[in-house]
Amino acid sequence: MIKMNRIILTVSALVKDNLRNRFVIFWVIVFPVLLTLLFSLVFGGFSTYFHVMVVVQGNENLAKFLNTTDIFQGITNVSLTYAMKHNYIYLKVNGTTFIIYASKQNQQFIPTLEAIVREYYQQDVNNNLHFNVAKITNYTYYDYLISGMIGIVSLSNGVLGIIGVSAGYYRDRLVERLAASPLRSYEWVISLIIYVIIITIISTITVIILGIIFNFIPIISLSFIGFIILSTLLFGGLGAIIYGLTPKDKIFLSEIISNILIFPLMFLSNAFFPSNVYPQYIREFVQYQPLSDIITVIRDFTIYGTLPSMSTILIIVILTIIFIYTGGKLLKLREID
């Protein structure tokens, strides 16, 4: 039977002990702030560095012509909703009338797009073209970046939170003292999970406060908060598995493995840039790896206020259950409980 008072006392001790640790403070607060500021300042207008995606409805040859430019990449067969959620420009062609749907960030490219369209049509209809522009969102790169950072927070705090505390307590022989107490292994696991959820919420609040400075006003809902907890559970379970499988006489390996795992997942994801800017040979991995899926759901909640793909949510729930169950079995206070 679960003793809630033991769990509450353990969680309280974990929070007090670790939030006094400068290393923990760095990963929970300083690291996400520095990373967000770095990418905000360096890539604040990131669309100018890459081809801008333009969805063309009504003229496939125009889309192909856009691909010959150094600025735009034309695609077809994509809905306006999908274009909006991926910050594409949407160009609807109806004879000599063109409706351009673009986000606030992409408004700067509209004059250039109009000029290229006129160039394409000039031999057929001269310049008797009519353009109407509609701003579909107030989307900016800062929205994209900061919502991505929220996903990274759940990854780093989930994996490193579990491994950092477990490995530190093992080296300091505090686990032996806990093993001598009435605390059961599953109560220890529950306490660790609650702890990483708490530090993830602290980190998320810090990133959102920073985001407000860049005019990022997220849509906060119970669904969003619940998903942050779910994603933290997923990565926390993964951290428990890594720690549980690591030989205790080589416990430092768990921290090395976690860093080897986290940084490729972080930088080969859609956290900082959309998947289409990556080389073709890794594009599929970037688009569908777990962190990218989680960030996509976070953006659906915080930026667009739409329901995410239920199939994606189901996959994340299944993976979370598997990781938490397996990690809970591996993360023991004592050999026999």
Rank of each mutant, 00 (worst) to 15 (best):
I162Q: 06
M4T: 09
S79C: 09
L291I: 05
R171S: 14
Q122E: 14
G148I: 08
I193W: 00
K3F: 08
I201Q: 05
I217D: 12
S269N: 05
S254Y: 11
Y169M: 10
R177M: 09
H130N: 15
V15S: 01
T306K: 10
T97S: 12
N276P: 08
L174Q: 12
V55G: 03
I219A: 10
Y186K: 07
Y186G: 05
T312Q: 04
Y121T: 06
S79L: 11
F23I: 14
V54R: 05
Y120C: 06
V42T: 09
V165G: 01
V277H: 11
I282K: 04
R283M: 10
D172C: 13
Q280H: 14
T69R: 09
S185R: 05
I219Q: 13
T10D: 01
F273D: 01
N77H: 03
I7M: 00
G44D: 04
Y141M: 03
V42E: 08
M266T: 14
F285W: 13
L233F: 01
W188I: 00
F46P: 09
Y278N: 01
Y186N: 09
G58H: 02
P247T: 12
D249L: 12
N5F: 01
Y121D: 08
I7Q: 00
I295D: 07
I193V: 05
L62C: 03
A240V: 08
T232Q: 03
G74R: 02
I219R: 13
F31E: 13
N67M: 12
T302F: 08
R118T: 14
F301P: 02
A102D: 14
L314W: 10
K332T: 11
I8R: 02
I193T: 02
N59R: 03
F131K: 06
Y101E: 15
I146W: 01
L113H: 07
S269T: 04
H130Q: 15
V33W: 09
Q280M: 14
I208H: 04
V52A: 10
G164V: 14
S103D: 15
K248A: 13
T137L: 14
L41K: 07
N157T: 06
Y278H: 03
S154V: 07
L41A: 06
Y141P: 00
I163K: 00
V159S: 05
D300M: 07
F98Q: 02
K104L: 15
Y278A: 03
Y278L: 06
Q57A: 09
I217Q: 12
K92V: 10
W27T: 13
I7C: 01
S185T: 08
I71M: 13
I295M: 10
L41Q: 06
K16V: 05
I71A: 08
D300C: 09
I228H: 07
I194T: 01
Q289C: 00
L314D: 07
M53L: 14
T97K: 10
P274I: 07
I324T: 07
V33A: 11
Y288D: 10
I2H: 01
I228P: 02
S154Q: 05
S147R: 04
I220W: 07
P279L: 09
I162H: 06
V15W: 03
R171E: 15
K92T: 11
L14P: 01
I162L: 11
G158R: 02
F50W: 12
P32H: 11
I202G: 02
K135W: 15
I257M: 13
L34W: 15
I313E: 04
Y281K: 12
